[in-house]
Design a protein around this nucleic acid. Structure first.
Length: 423
RNA sequence: GUGGGCGUAGCUCAGUUGGUUAGAGCGUCGGGUUGUGGCCCCGGAGGCCGAGGGUUCAAAUCCCUCCGCUCACCCCA
């Protein structure tokens, strides 16, 4: 049996790679509009980084990380998300000293040992944005806008849902948590097995439960919305106002919760009905305590991540492969020998050129030209060499013209540039 | 980690109640006069029928085990 890639790790074949480049290009374009800078941190970090950053008692840390001992006994982990590593780097290099506000982005692979399914791989990719240094609602709103802009530019806005909630802060959140626990304790018997478990670990997660009965029982449960302190409440209101001004359509979802410990206040999620069970294409929120938690100064933060594989699912085949400018079909050794000079010249001038490495029939070479998506095909054989010309065929219109060999490469560059300009 | 569905050419899939040399479409390669692509026609190559075991005169087909893929739970981007 031939060797296959590891479960949950996928080869990215040319067609998909093209779509990914499009995502990356679009992301950079949008990020430039807001003045973000790119940062690239290692894929491998000390396990400690994620334990502290994500939270010791999250599923990610407890059972989904690729953790192993290095040869010298250090516990290392393949990053399951980007934020913790970026925060580590910001602290290590004291980047916050260079500017009061850091607007950072990164893109790359993340690793989580989960059971693969639609929109969920063990090696998956994210485009991440982290703003460090602002508590202002305008920064929350900009983060949501970036996520929205990215997803809609690439996949349209159809079937998308933007949900927003506030998780409160360290002042008001504990009150809600306490009341919620009491409520759950009293209704314990009506909750499903999973929720019984969630009750202890992360009570807020119960709001995510898909069980009909649980949902009904939670209708009367205390909701964070009613516990927000004046500051948090005002903050949320301001974020929503700005989003409205930006034209981002959203709904408030008081039940929206995040899986990671470090989130406070604003939390949001963009989902699509077209995605299946893993419906979140982008998500994020505010994490004011994280930098401090990881040993840095008390710097607030907001961030988001776009799931690349999920975005790809929404884009499905909308990226057309690009063809080549010119295919040279040379017949016979003399013509081939002659053509190498042109090929070198044209490529240096930025003209894309392909040709057949094998000495094939003209018909076979034309077929190859067609498959390569060539806009022009240059045909040269003995007859042409005798007349000191070459035939240039426009593959679309089938028009052919003879070009003198004397100034052939220059003439080709000009024709092809004009053609491109006309497109 | 727990369930459901599925593994037959490169891809998408047929394959009748077990029966002899396992098929189609697409793709690929070649040909349809000597030098002109896509469409059409003809032809070729390409399969340990996921792996191993069992039942049987006979297994792609029935049974068991394992592996893989996939969807869902869980979790989350």
């Amino acid at each position: 049996m031939a060797i296959k890639a590891v479960r949950g790790f996928k080869d990215i074949l040319p067609e998909e790679a093209l779509a990914r480049v499009r995502i990356e290009d679009t992301a950079r374009e949008i990020f430039d509009l807001c003045g973000l800078k790119e940062i690239r941190t290692p894929i491998l970090e000390k396990t400690e980084v994620f334990k502290r950053g994500i939270g010791e008692h999250t599923d990610i840390v407890e059972k989904e990380m690729y953790t192993f001992l290095d040869r010298n006994g250090d516990s290392l982990t393949l990053r399951p998300e980007a934020t913790a590593g970026i925060v580590r780097a910001v602290i290590q290099h004291k980047l916050y000293g260079k500017s009061p506000l850091l607007k950072l982005f990164t893109m790359g692979p993340m690793f989580r040992h989960e059971r693969p399914q639609k929109g969920r791989l063990r090696q998956f990719h994210q485009v991440n944005v982290e703003y460090l240094g602002s508590r202002e609602p305008a920064s929350d709103a900009e983060i949501v806008w970036l996520a929205w802009e990215m997803v809609t530019r690439l996949a349209g806005s159809e079937d998308l849902l933007v949900e927003i909630n506030s998780l409160g802060c360290e002042k008001c959140r504990p009150l809600h948590r306490a009341d919620l626990k009491v409520y759950l304790e009293n209704n314990k018997g009506d909750l499903c097995e999973d929720c019984q478990r969630r009750m202890k670990l992360n009570p807020l997660r119960i709001f995510d439960c898909k069980n009909e009965e649980c949902r009904r029982n939670l209708l009367l449960a205390p909701v964070m919305k009613h516990y927000l302190c004046p500051d948090c409440s005002e903050h949320l209101g301001a974020v929503l106002d700005i989003l409205e001004a930006y034209g981002v359509p959203f709904v408030q979802n008081p039940y929206l919760v995040r899986g990671l410990d470090y989130y406070v206040r604003t939390t949001f999620e963009i989902t699509s009905k077209r995605l299946g069970a893993q419906s979140t294409v982008a998500a994020g929120g505010r994490y004011d305590g994280l930098v401090g938690l990881m040993g840095g100064p008390d710097i607030p933060g907001v961030g988001m991540a776009v799931g690349v594989e999920r975005l790809l699912l929404l884009m499905e085949g909308s990226v057309a492969p690009k063809g080549i400018d010119l295919f040279i079909a040379a017949l016979g050794q003399d013509a081939r020998d002659e053509s190498y000079f042109w090929i070198g010249y044209l490529r240096r001038k930025g003209v894309g050129v392909e040709f057949s490495f094998e000495d094939k029939s003209l018909k076979a070479q034309m077929k190859q030209a067609d498959k390569a998506g060539a806009r022009y095909c240059l045909i040269v054989g003995e007859q042409e060499l005798d007349k000191e010309v070459a035939i240039l065929r426009d593959m679309e219109t089938k028009q052919q013209e003879e070009i003198e060999l004397d100034d052939l490469p220059e003439a080709l560059v000009e024709r092809i540039r004009n053609k491109k300009a006309g497109d």
